[in-house]
Design a protein around this nucleic acid. Structure first.
Lengths: 339, 339
DNA sequence: ATGAAAGCGCTAACAT
DNA sequence: ATGTTAGCGCTTTCAT
């Protein structure tokens, strides 16, 4: 039997029912149910109401409450692509946990990066009286926000829109790049290649800056011929292998884990071993990959969960927006065995 | 400037405002705003209301509407792990698209497979008057549902609970296993290994059954020594390589893409080539992996998006629950270059 | 210490 | 063809 009681009666028990059962007024019920601070309710009445509540299986109607107080506990999350990678999932996860923690619930919408869908999504969220909106991208980039979004509080997650006046929270790409390089330096490497993406982006710029800065601190001259452009995927990493070998580096910092994965293949084909012959550092800490390469890949984590969580904190005013703009979240190193 | 107008005034313009502006009653406004079918409204009045609406930037309050009609447009999605893989993301994506299509919005909650969190999530959804709940798992398995879930319509997605009476929608593992094997057969292979997971699960049982059934149809005797158990990850696939080589098979069907990825490594280390020396078939069509192995991996897709979509269709009564139980969704083949 | 009543924004009879 | 009115379940001010 798999039957759906379409139109099943939800929780027909209301405060009025409780009031009647407990022999008090709904006002009293409201007070005890919500544990109102300044409420002077007799111990006896309070007890009767509580009993009636569990007795009848009372469940407050959050929507009615919202309507009456004029302030909802919804937070809208609009995402450009929730299914492409685990990244967006982690943002949702972080946002949901944090929202939850403060009594809020998450309304999610996927837009496939399509403006019409975005407008519709935002509109629907406004109609549902969301407290505010988290506008997120699955990869760190600059965006232009839909106009409608200004009709409520909004924070940008994993993206930013200069000049929009909207608070944003993004990964600290430069720190990440620096950290990755430092890990290699710490292992004694001095001649370190960097396979950077060919795609212009905050990641491209930031990670490079981090790489340079770490080198500089270590007193190593930046050598432009040691940064190699590549498509930010396995294929790009693989294709770069010959150049890496030619360059005589002892270590390479890859723009992301997928590139590292491709490079692993190439390096192996050349009969070289990781990390003995060449050390490899990734970026992203991509789920199904990083921990399972051979050897497991040392990398730097993209803090998606934290981005989502920090986003709602900003939105709810728990963190303030007075910090750096955009708000940068640290990308921590994840040590494994490729160094 | 990144300021959040905490407590910003949403859309203070109500139907009453429209009524006043258009010189009509709120009932009339309600009718034209909702394009009520049987409503006889004068062309003039209708026009005036519409103008006022865009003039004042009217936006209906979905919550008030719900309260008044007693029926909401929320669908709750409770997931055990939205961030572990892209899988759950795809379920959310499918569910959200389909819900959207019918005017519903998705409320999501992550529970980390923890009963207390589940209860809280369900409770919160009931308080928000959800129309129904989608209870999902990131991997196909049997579950026991929280009791509270019976208080509303529920459909199980990517999981099932026999005896619960709840409709469920799951991938058709057996058909998937058969399809995978058929692909190998079609390429001329007769001696085909199957690396199955060590984890008892519908996938373990179903894919094996599919493998056997395809073999049987092809008139090939099932050879038990050709199915190898392995941990369902890269490491498991890699570790199985020697046995695969020893078995003299010309093709291997892997329990999932991660196993295939590990096997790729092993095969290469033995100096063999894919697919020339050994053909490899995966399962899952896992995002960041399958398309980017060398060569790109032929596999069978786990229809997560479709599971989510079918789940809401069932919930809304668009599809009926009279089919097989649980409802099985096809796992289509994805041809690439490892065969 | 408790209750009555107005009102949140909208819908749905029922009048007119 | 349009208006009146009584809720929906809850909060909140103001009485008592």
């Amino acid at each position: 039997m798999t039957t759906l009681g379409h139109g099943k009666n939800n929780s027909p028990v209301t405060m009025r029912d409780l009031a009647k059962a407990a022999g008090v007024s709904v006002a009293t019920v409201s007070h005890v149910v919500n544990d109102k601070p300044g409420a002077r309710i007799g111990d006896d009445a309070r007890r009767r109401v509580k009993e009636a509540a569990i007795q009848l299986g009372y469940r407050p109607n959050a929507l009615a409450k919202t309507l009456s107080q004029g302030t909802s506990r919804f937070i809208g999350l609009v995402a450009d692509a929730i299914a492409t990678t685990p990244f967006a999932g982690q943002i949702i996860h972080g946002a949901q946990d944090e929202a939850w923690k403060h009594g809020y619930v998450l309304l999610v919408a996927n837009t496939d990066d399509n403006r019409a869908a975005e407008d519709e999504a935002i509109n629907m969220m406004l109609e549902h009286q969301v407290h505010g909106i988290l506008y997120s991208s699955w990869y760190h980039r600059e965006i232009t926000v839909p106009k409608a979004i200004h009709q409520t509080d909004t924070v940008l997650v994993n993206c930013f829109a200069d000049g929009s006046g909207l608070p944003a929270v993004v990964p600290d790409e430069e720190q990440g790049g620096r950290t990755a390089t430092e890990e290699l330096l710490a292992a004694g490497h001095r001649r370190i290649a960097f396979i950077n993406t060919t795609t212009p982006s905050p990641a491209q710029k930031g990670r490079l800056a981090g790489y340079r800065s770490a080198l500089e601190v270590a007193g190593i001259a930046f050598d432009e011929t040691l940064v190699f452009p590549a498509e930010p995927e396995q294929e790009g990493g693989y294709a770069t292998t010959p150049k890496i070998i030619d360059s005589k580096v002892t270590a390479v910092f890859c723009h992301n884990d997928r590139v590292a994965m491709g490079l692993y293949d190439g390096i192996r084909e050349h009969g070289l071993r990781i990390p003995d012959d060449i050390a490899v550092m990734g970026f992203d800490n991509q789920d199904v990959i990083a921990a399972h390469l051979r050897p497991p890949l040392s990398t730097v984590a993209l803090p998606h969960y934290e981005l989502g969580a920090a986003g709602v904190r900003l939105l709810l005013g728990i963190d303030d927006t007075s910090g750096t703009h955009p708000n940068r979240i640290i990308c921590p190193p994840v040590k494994r065995h490729s160094i």
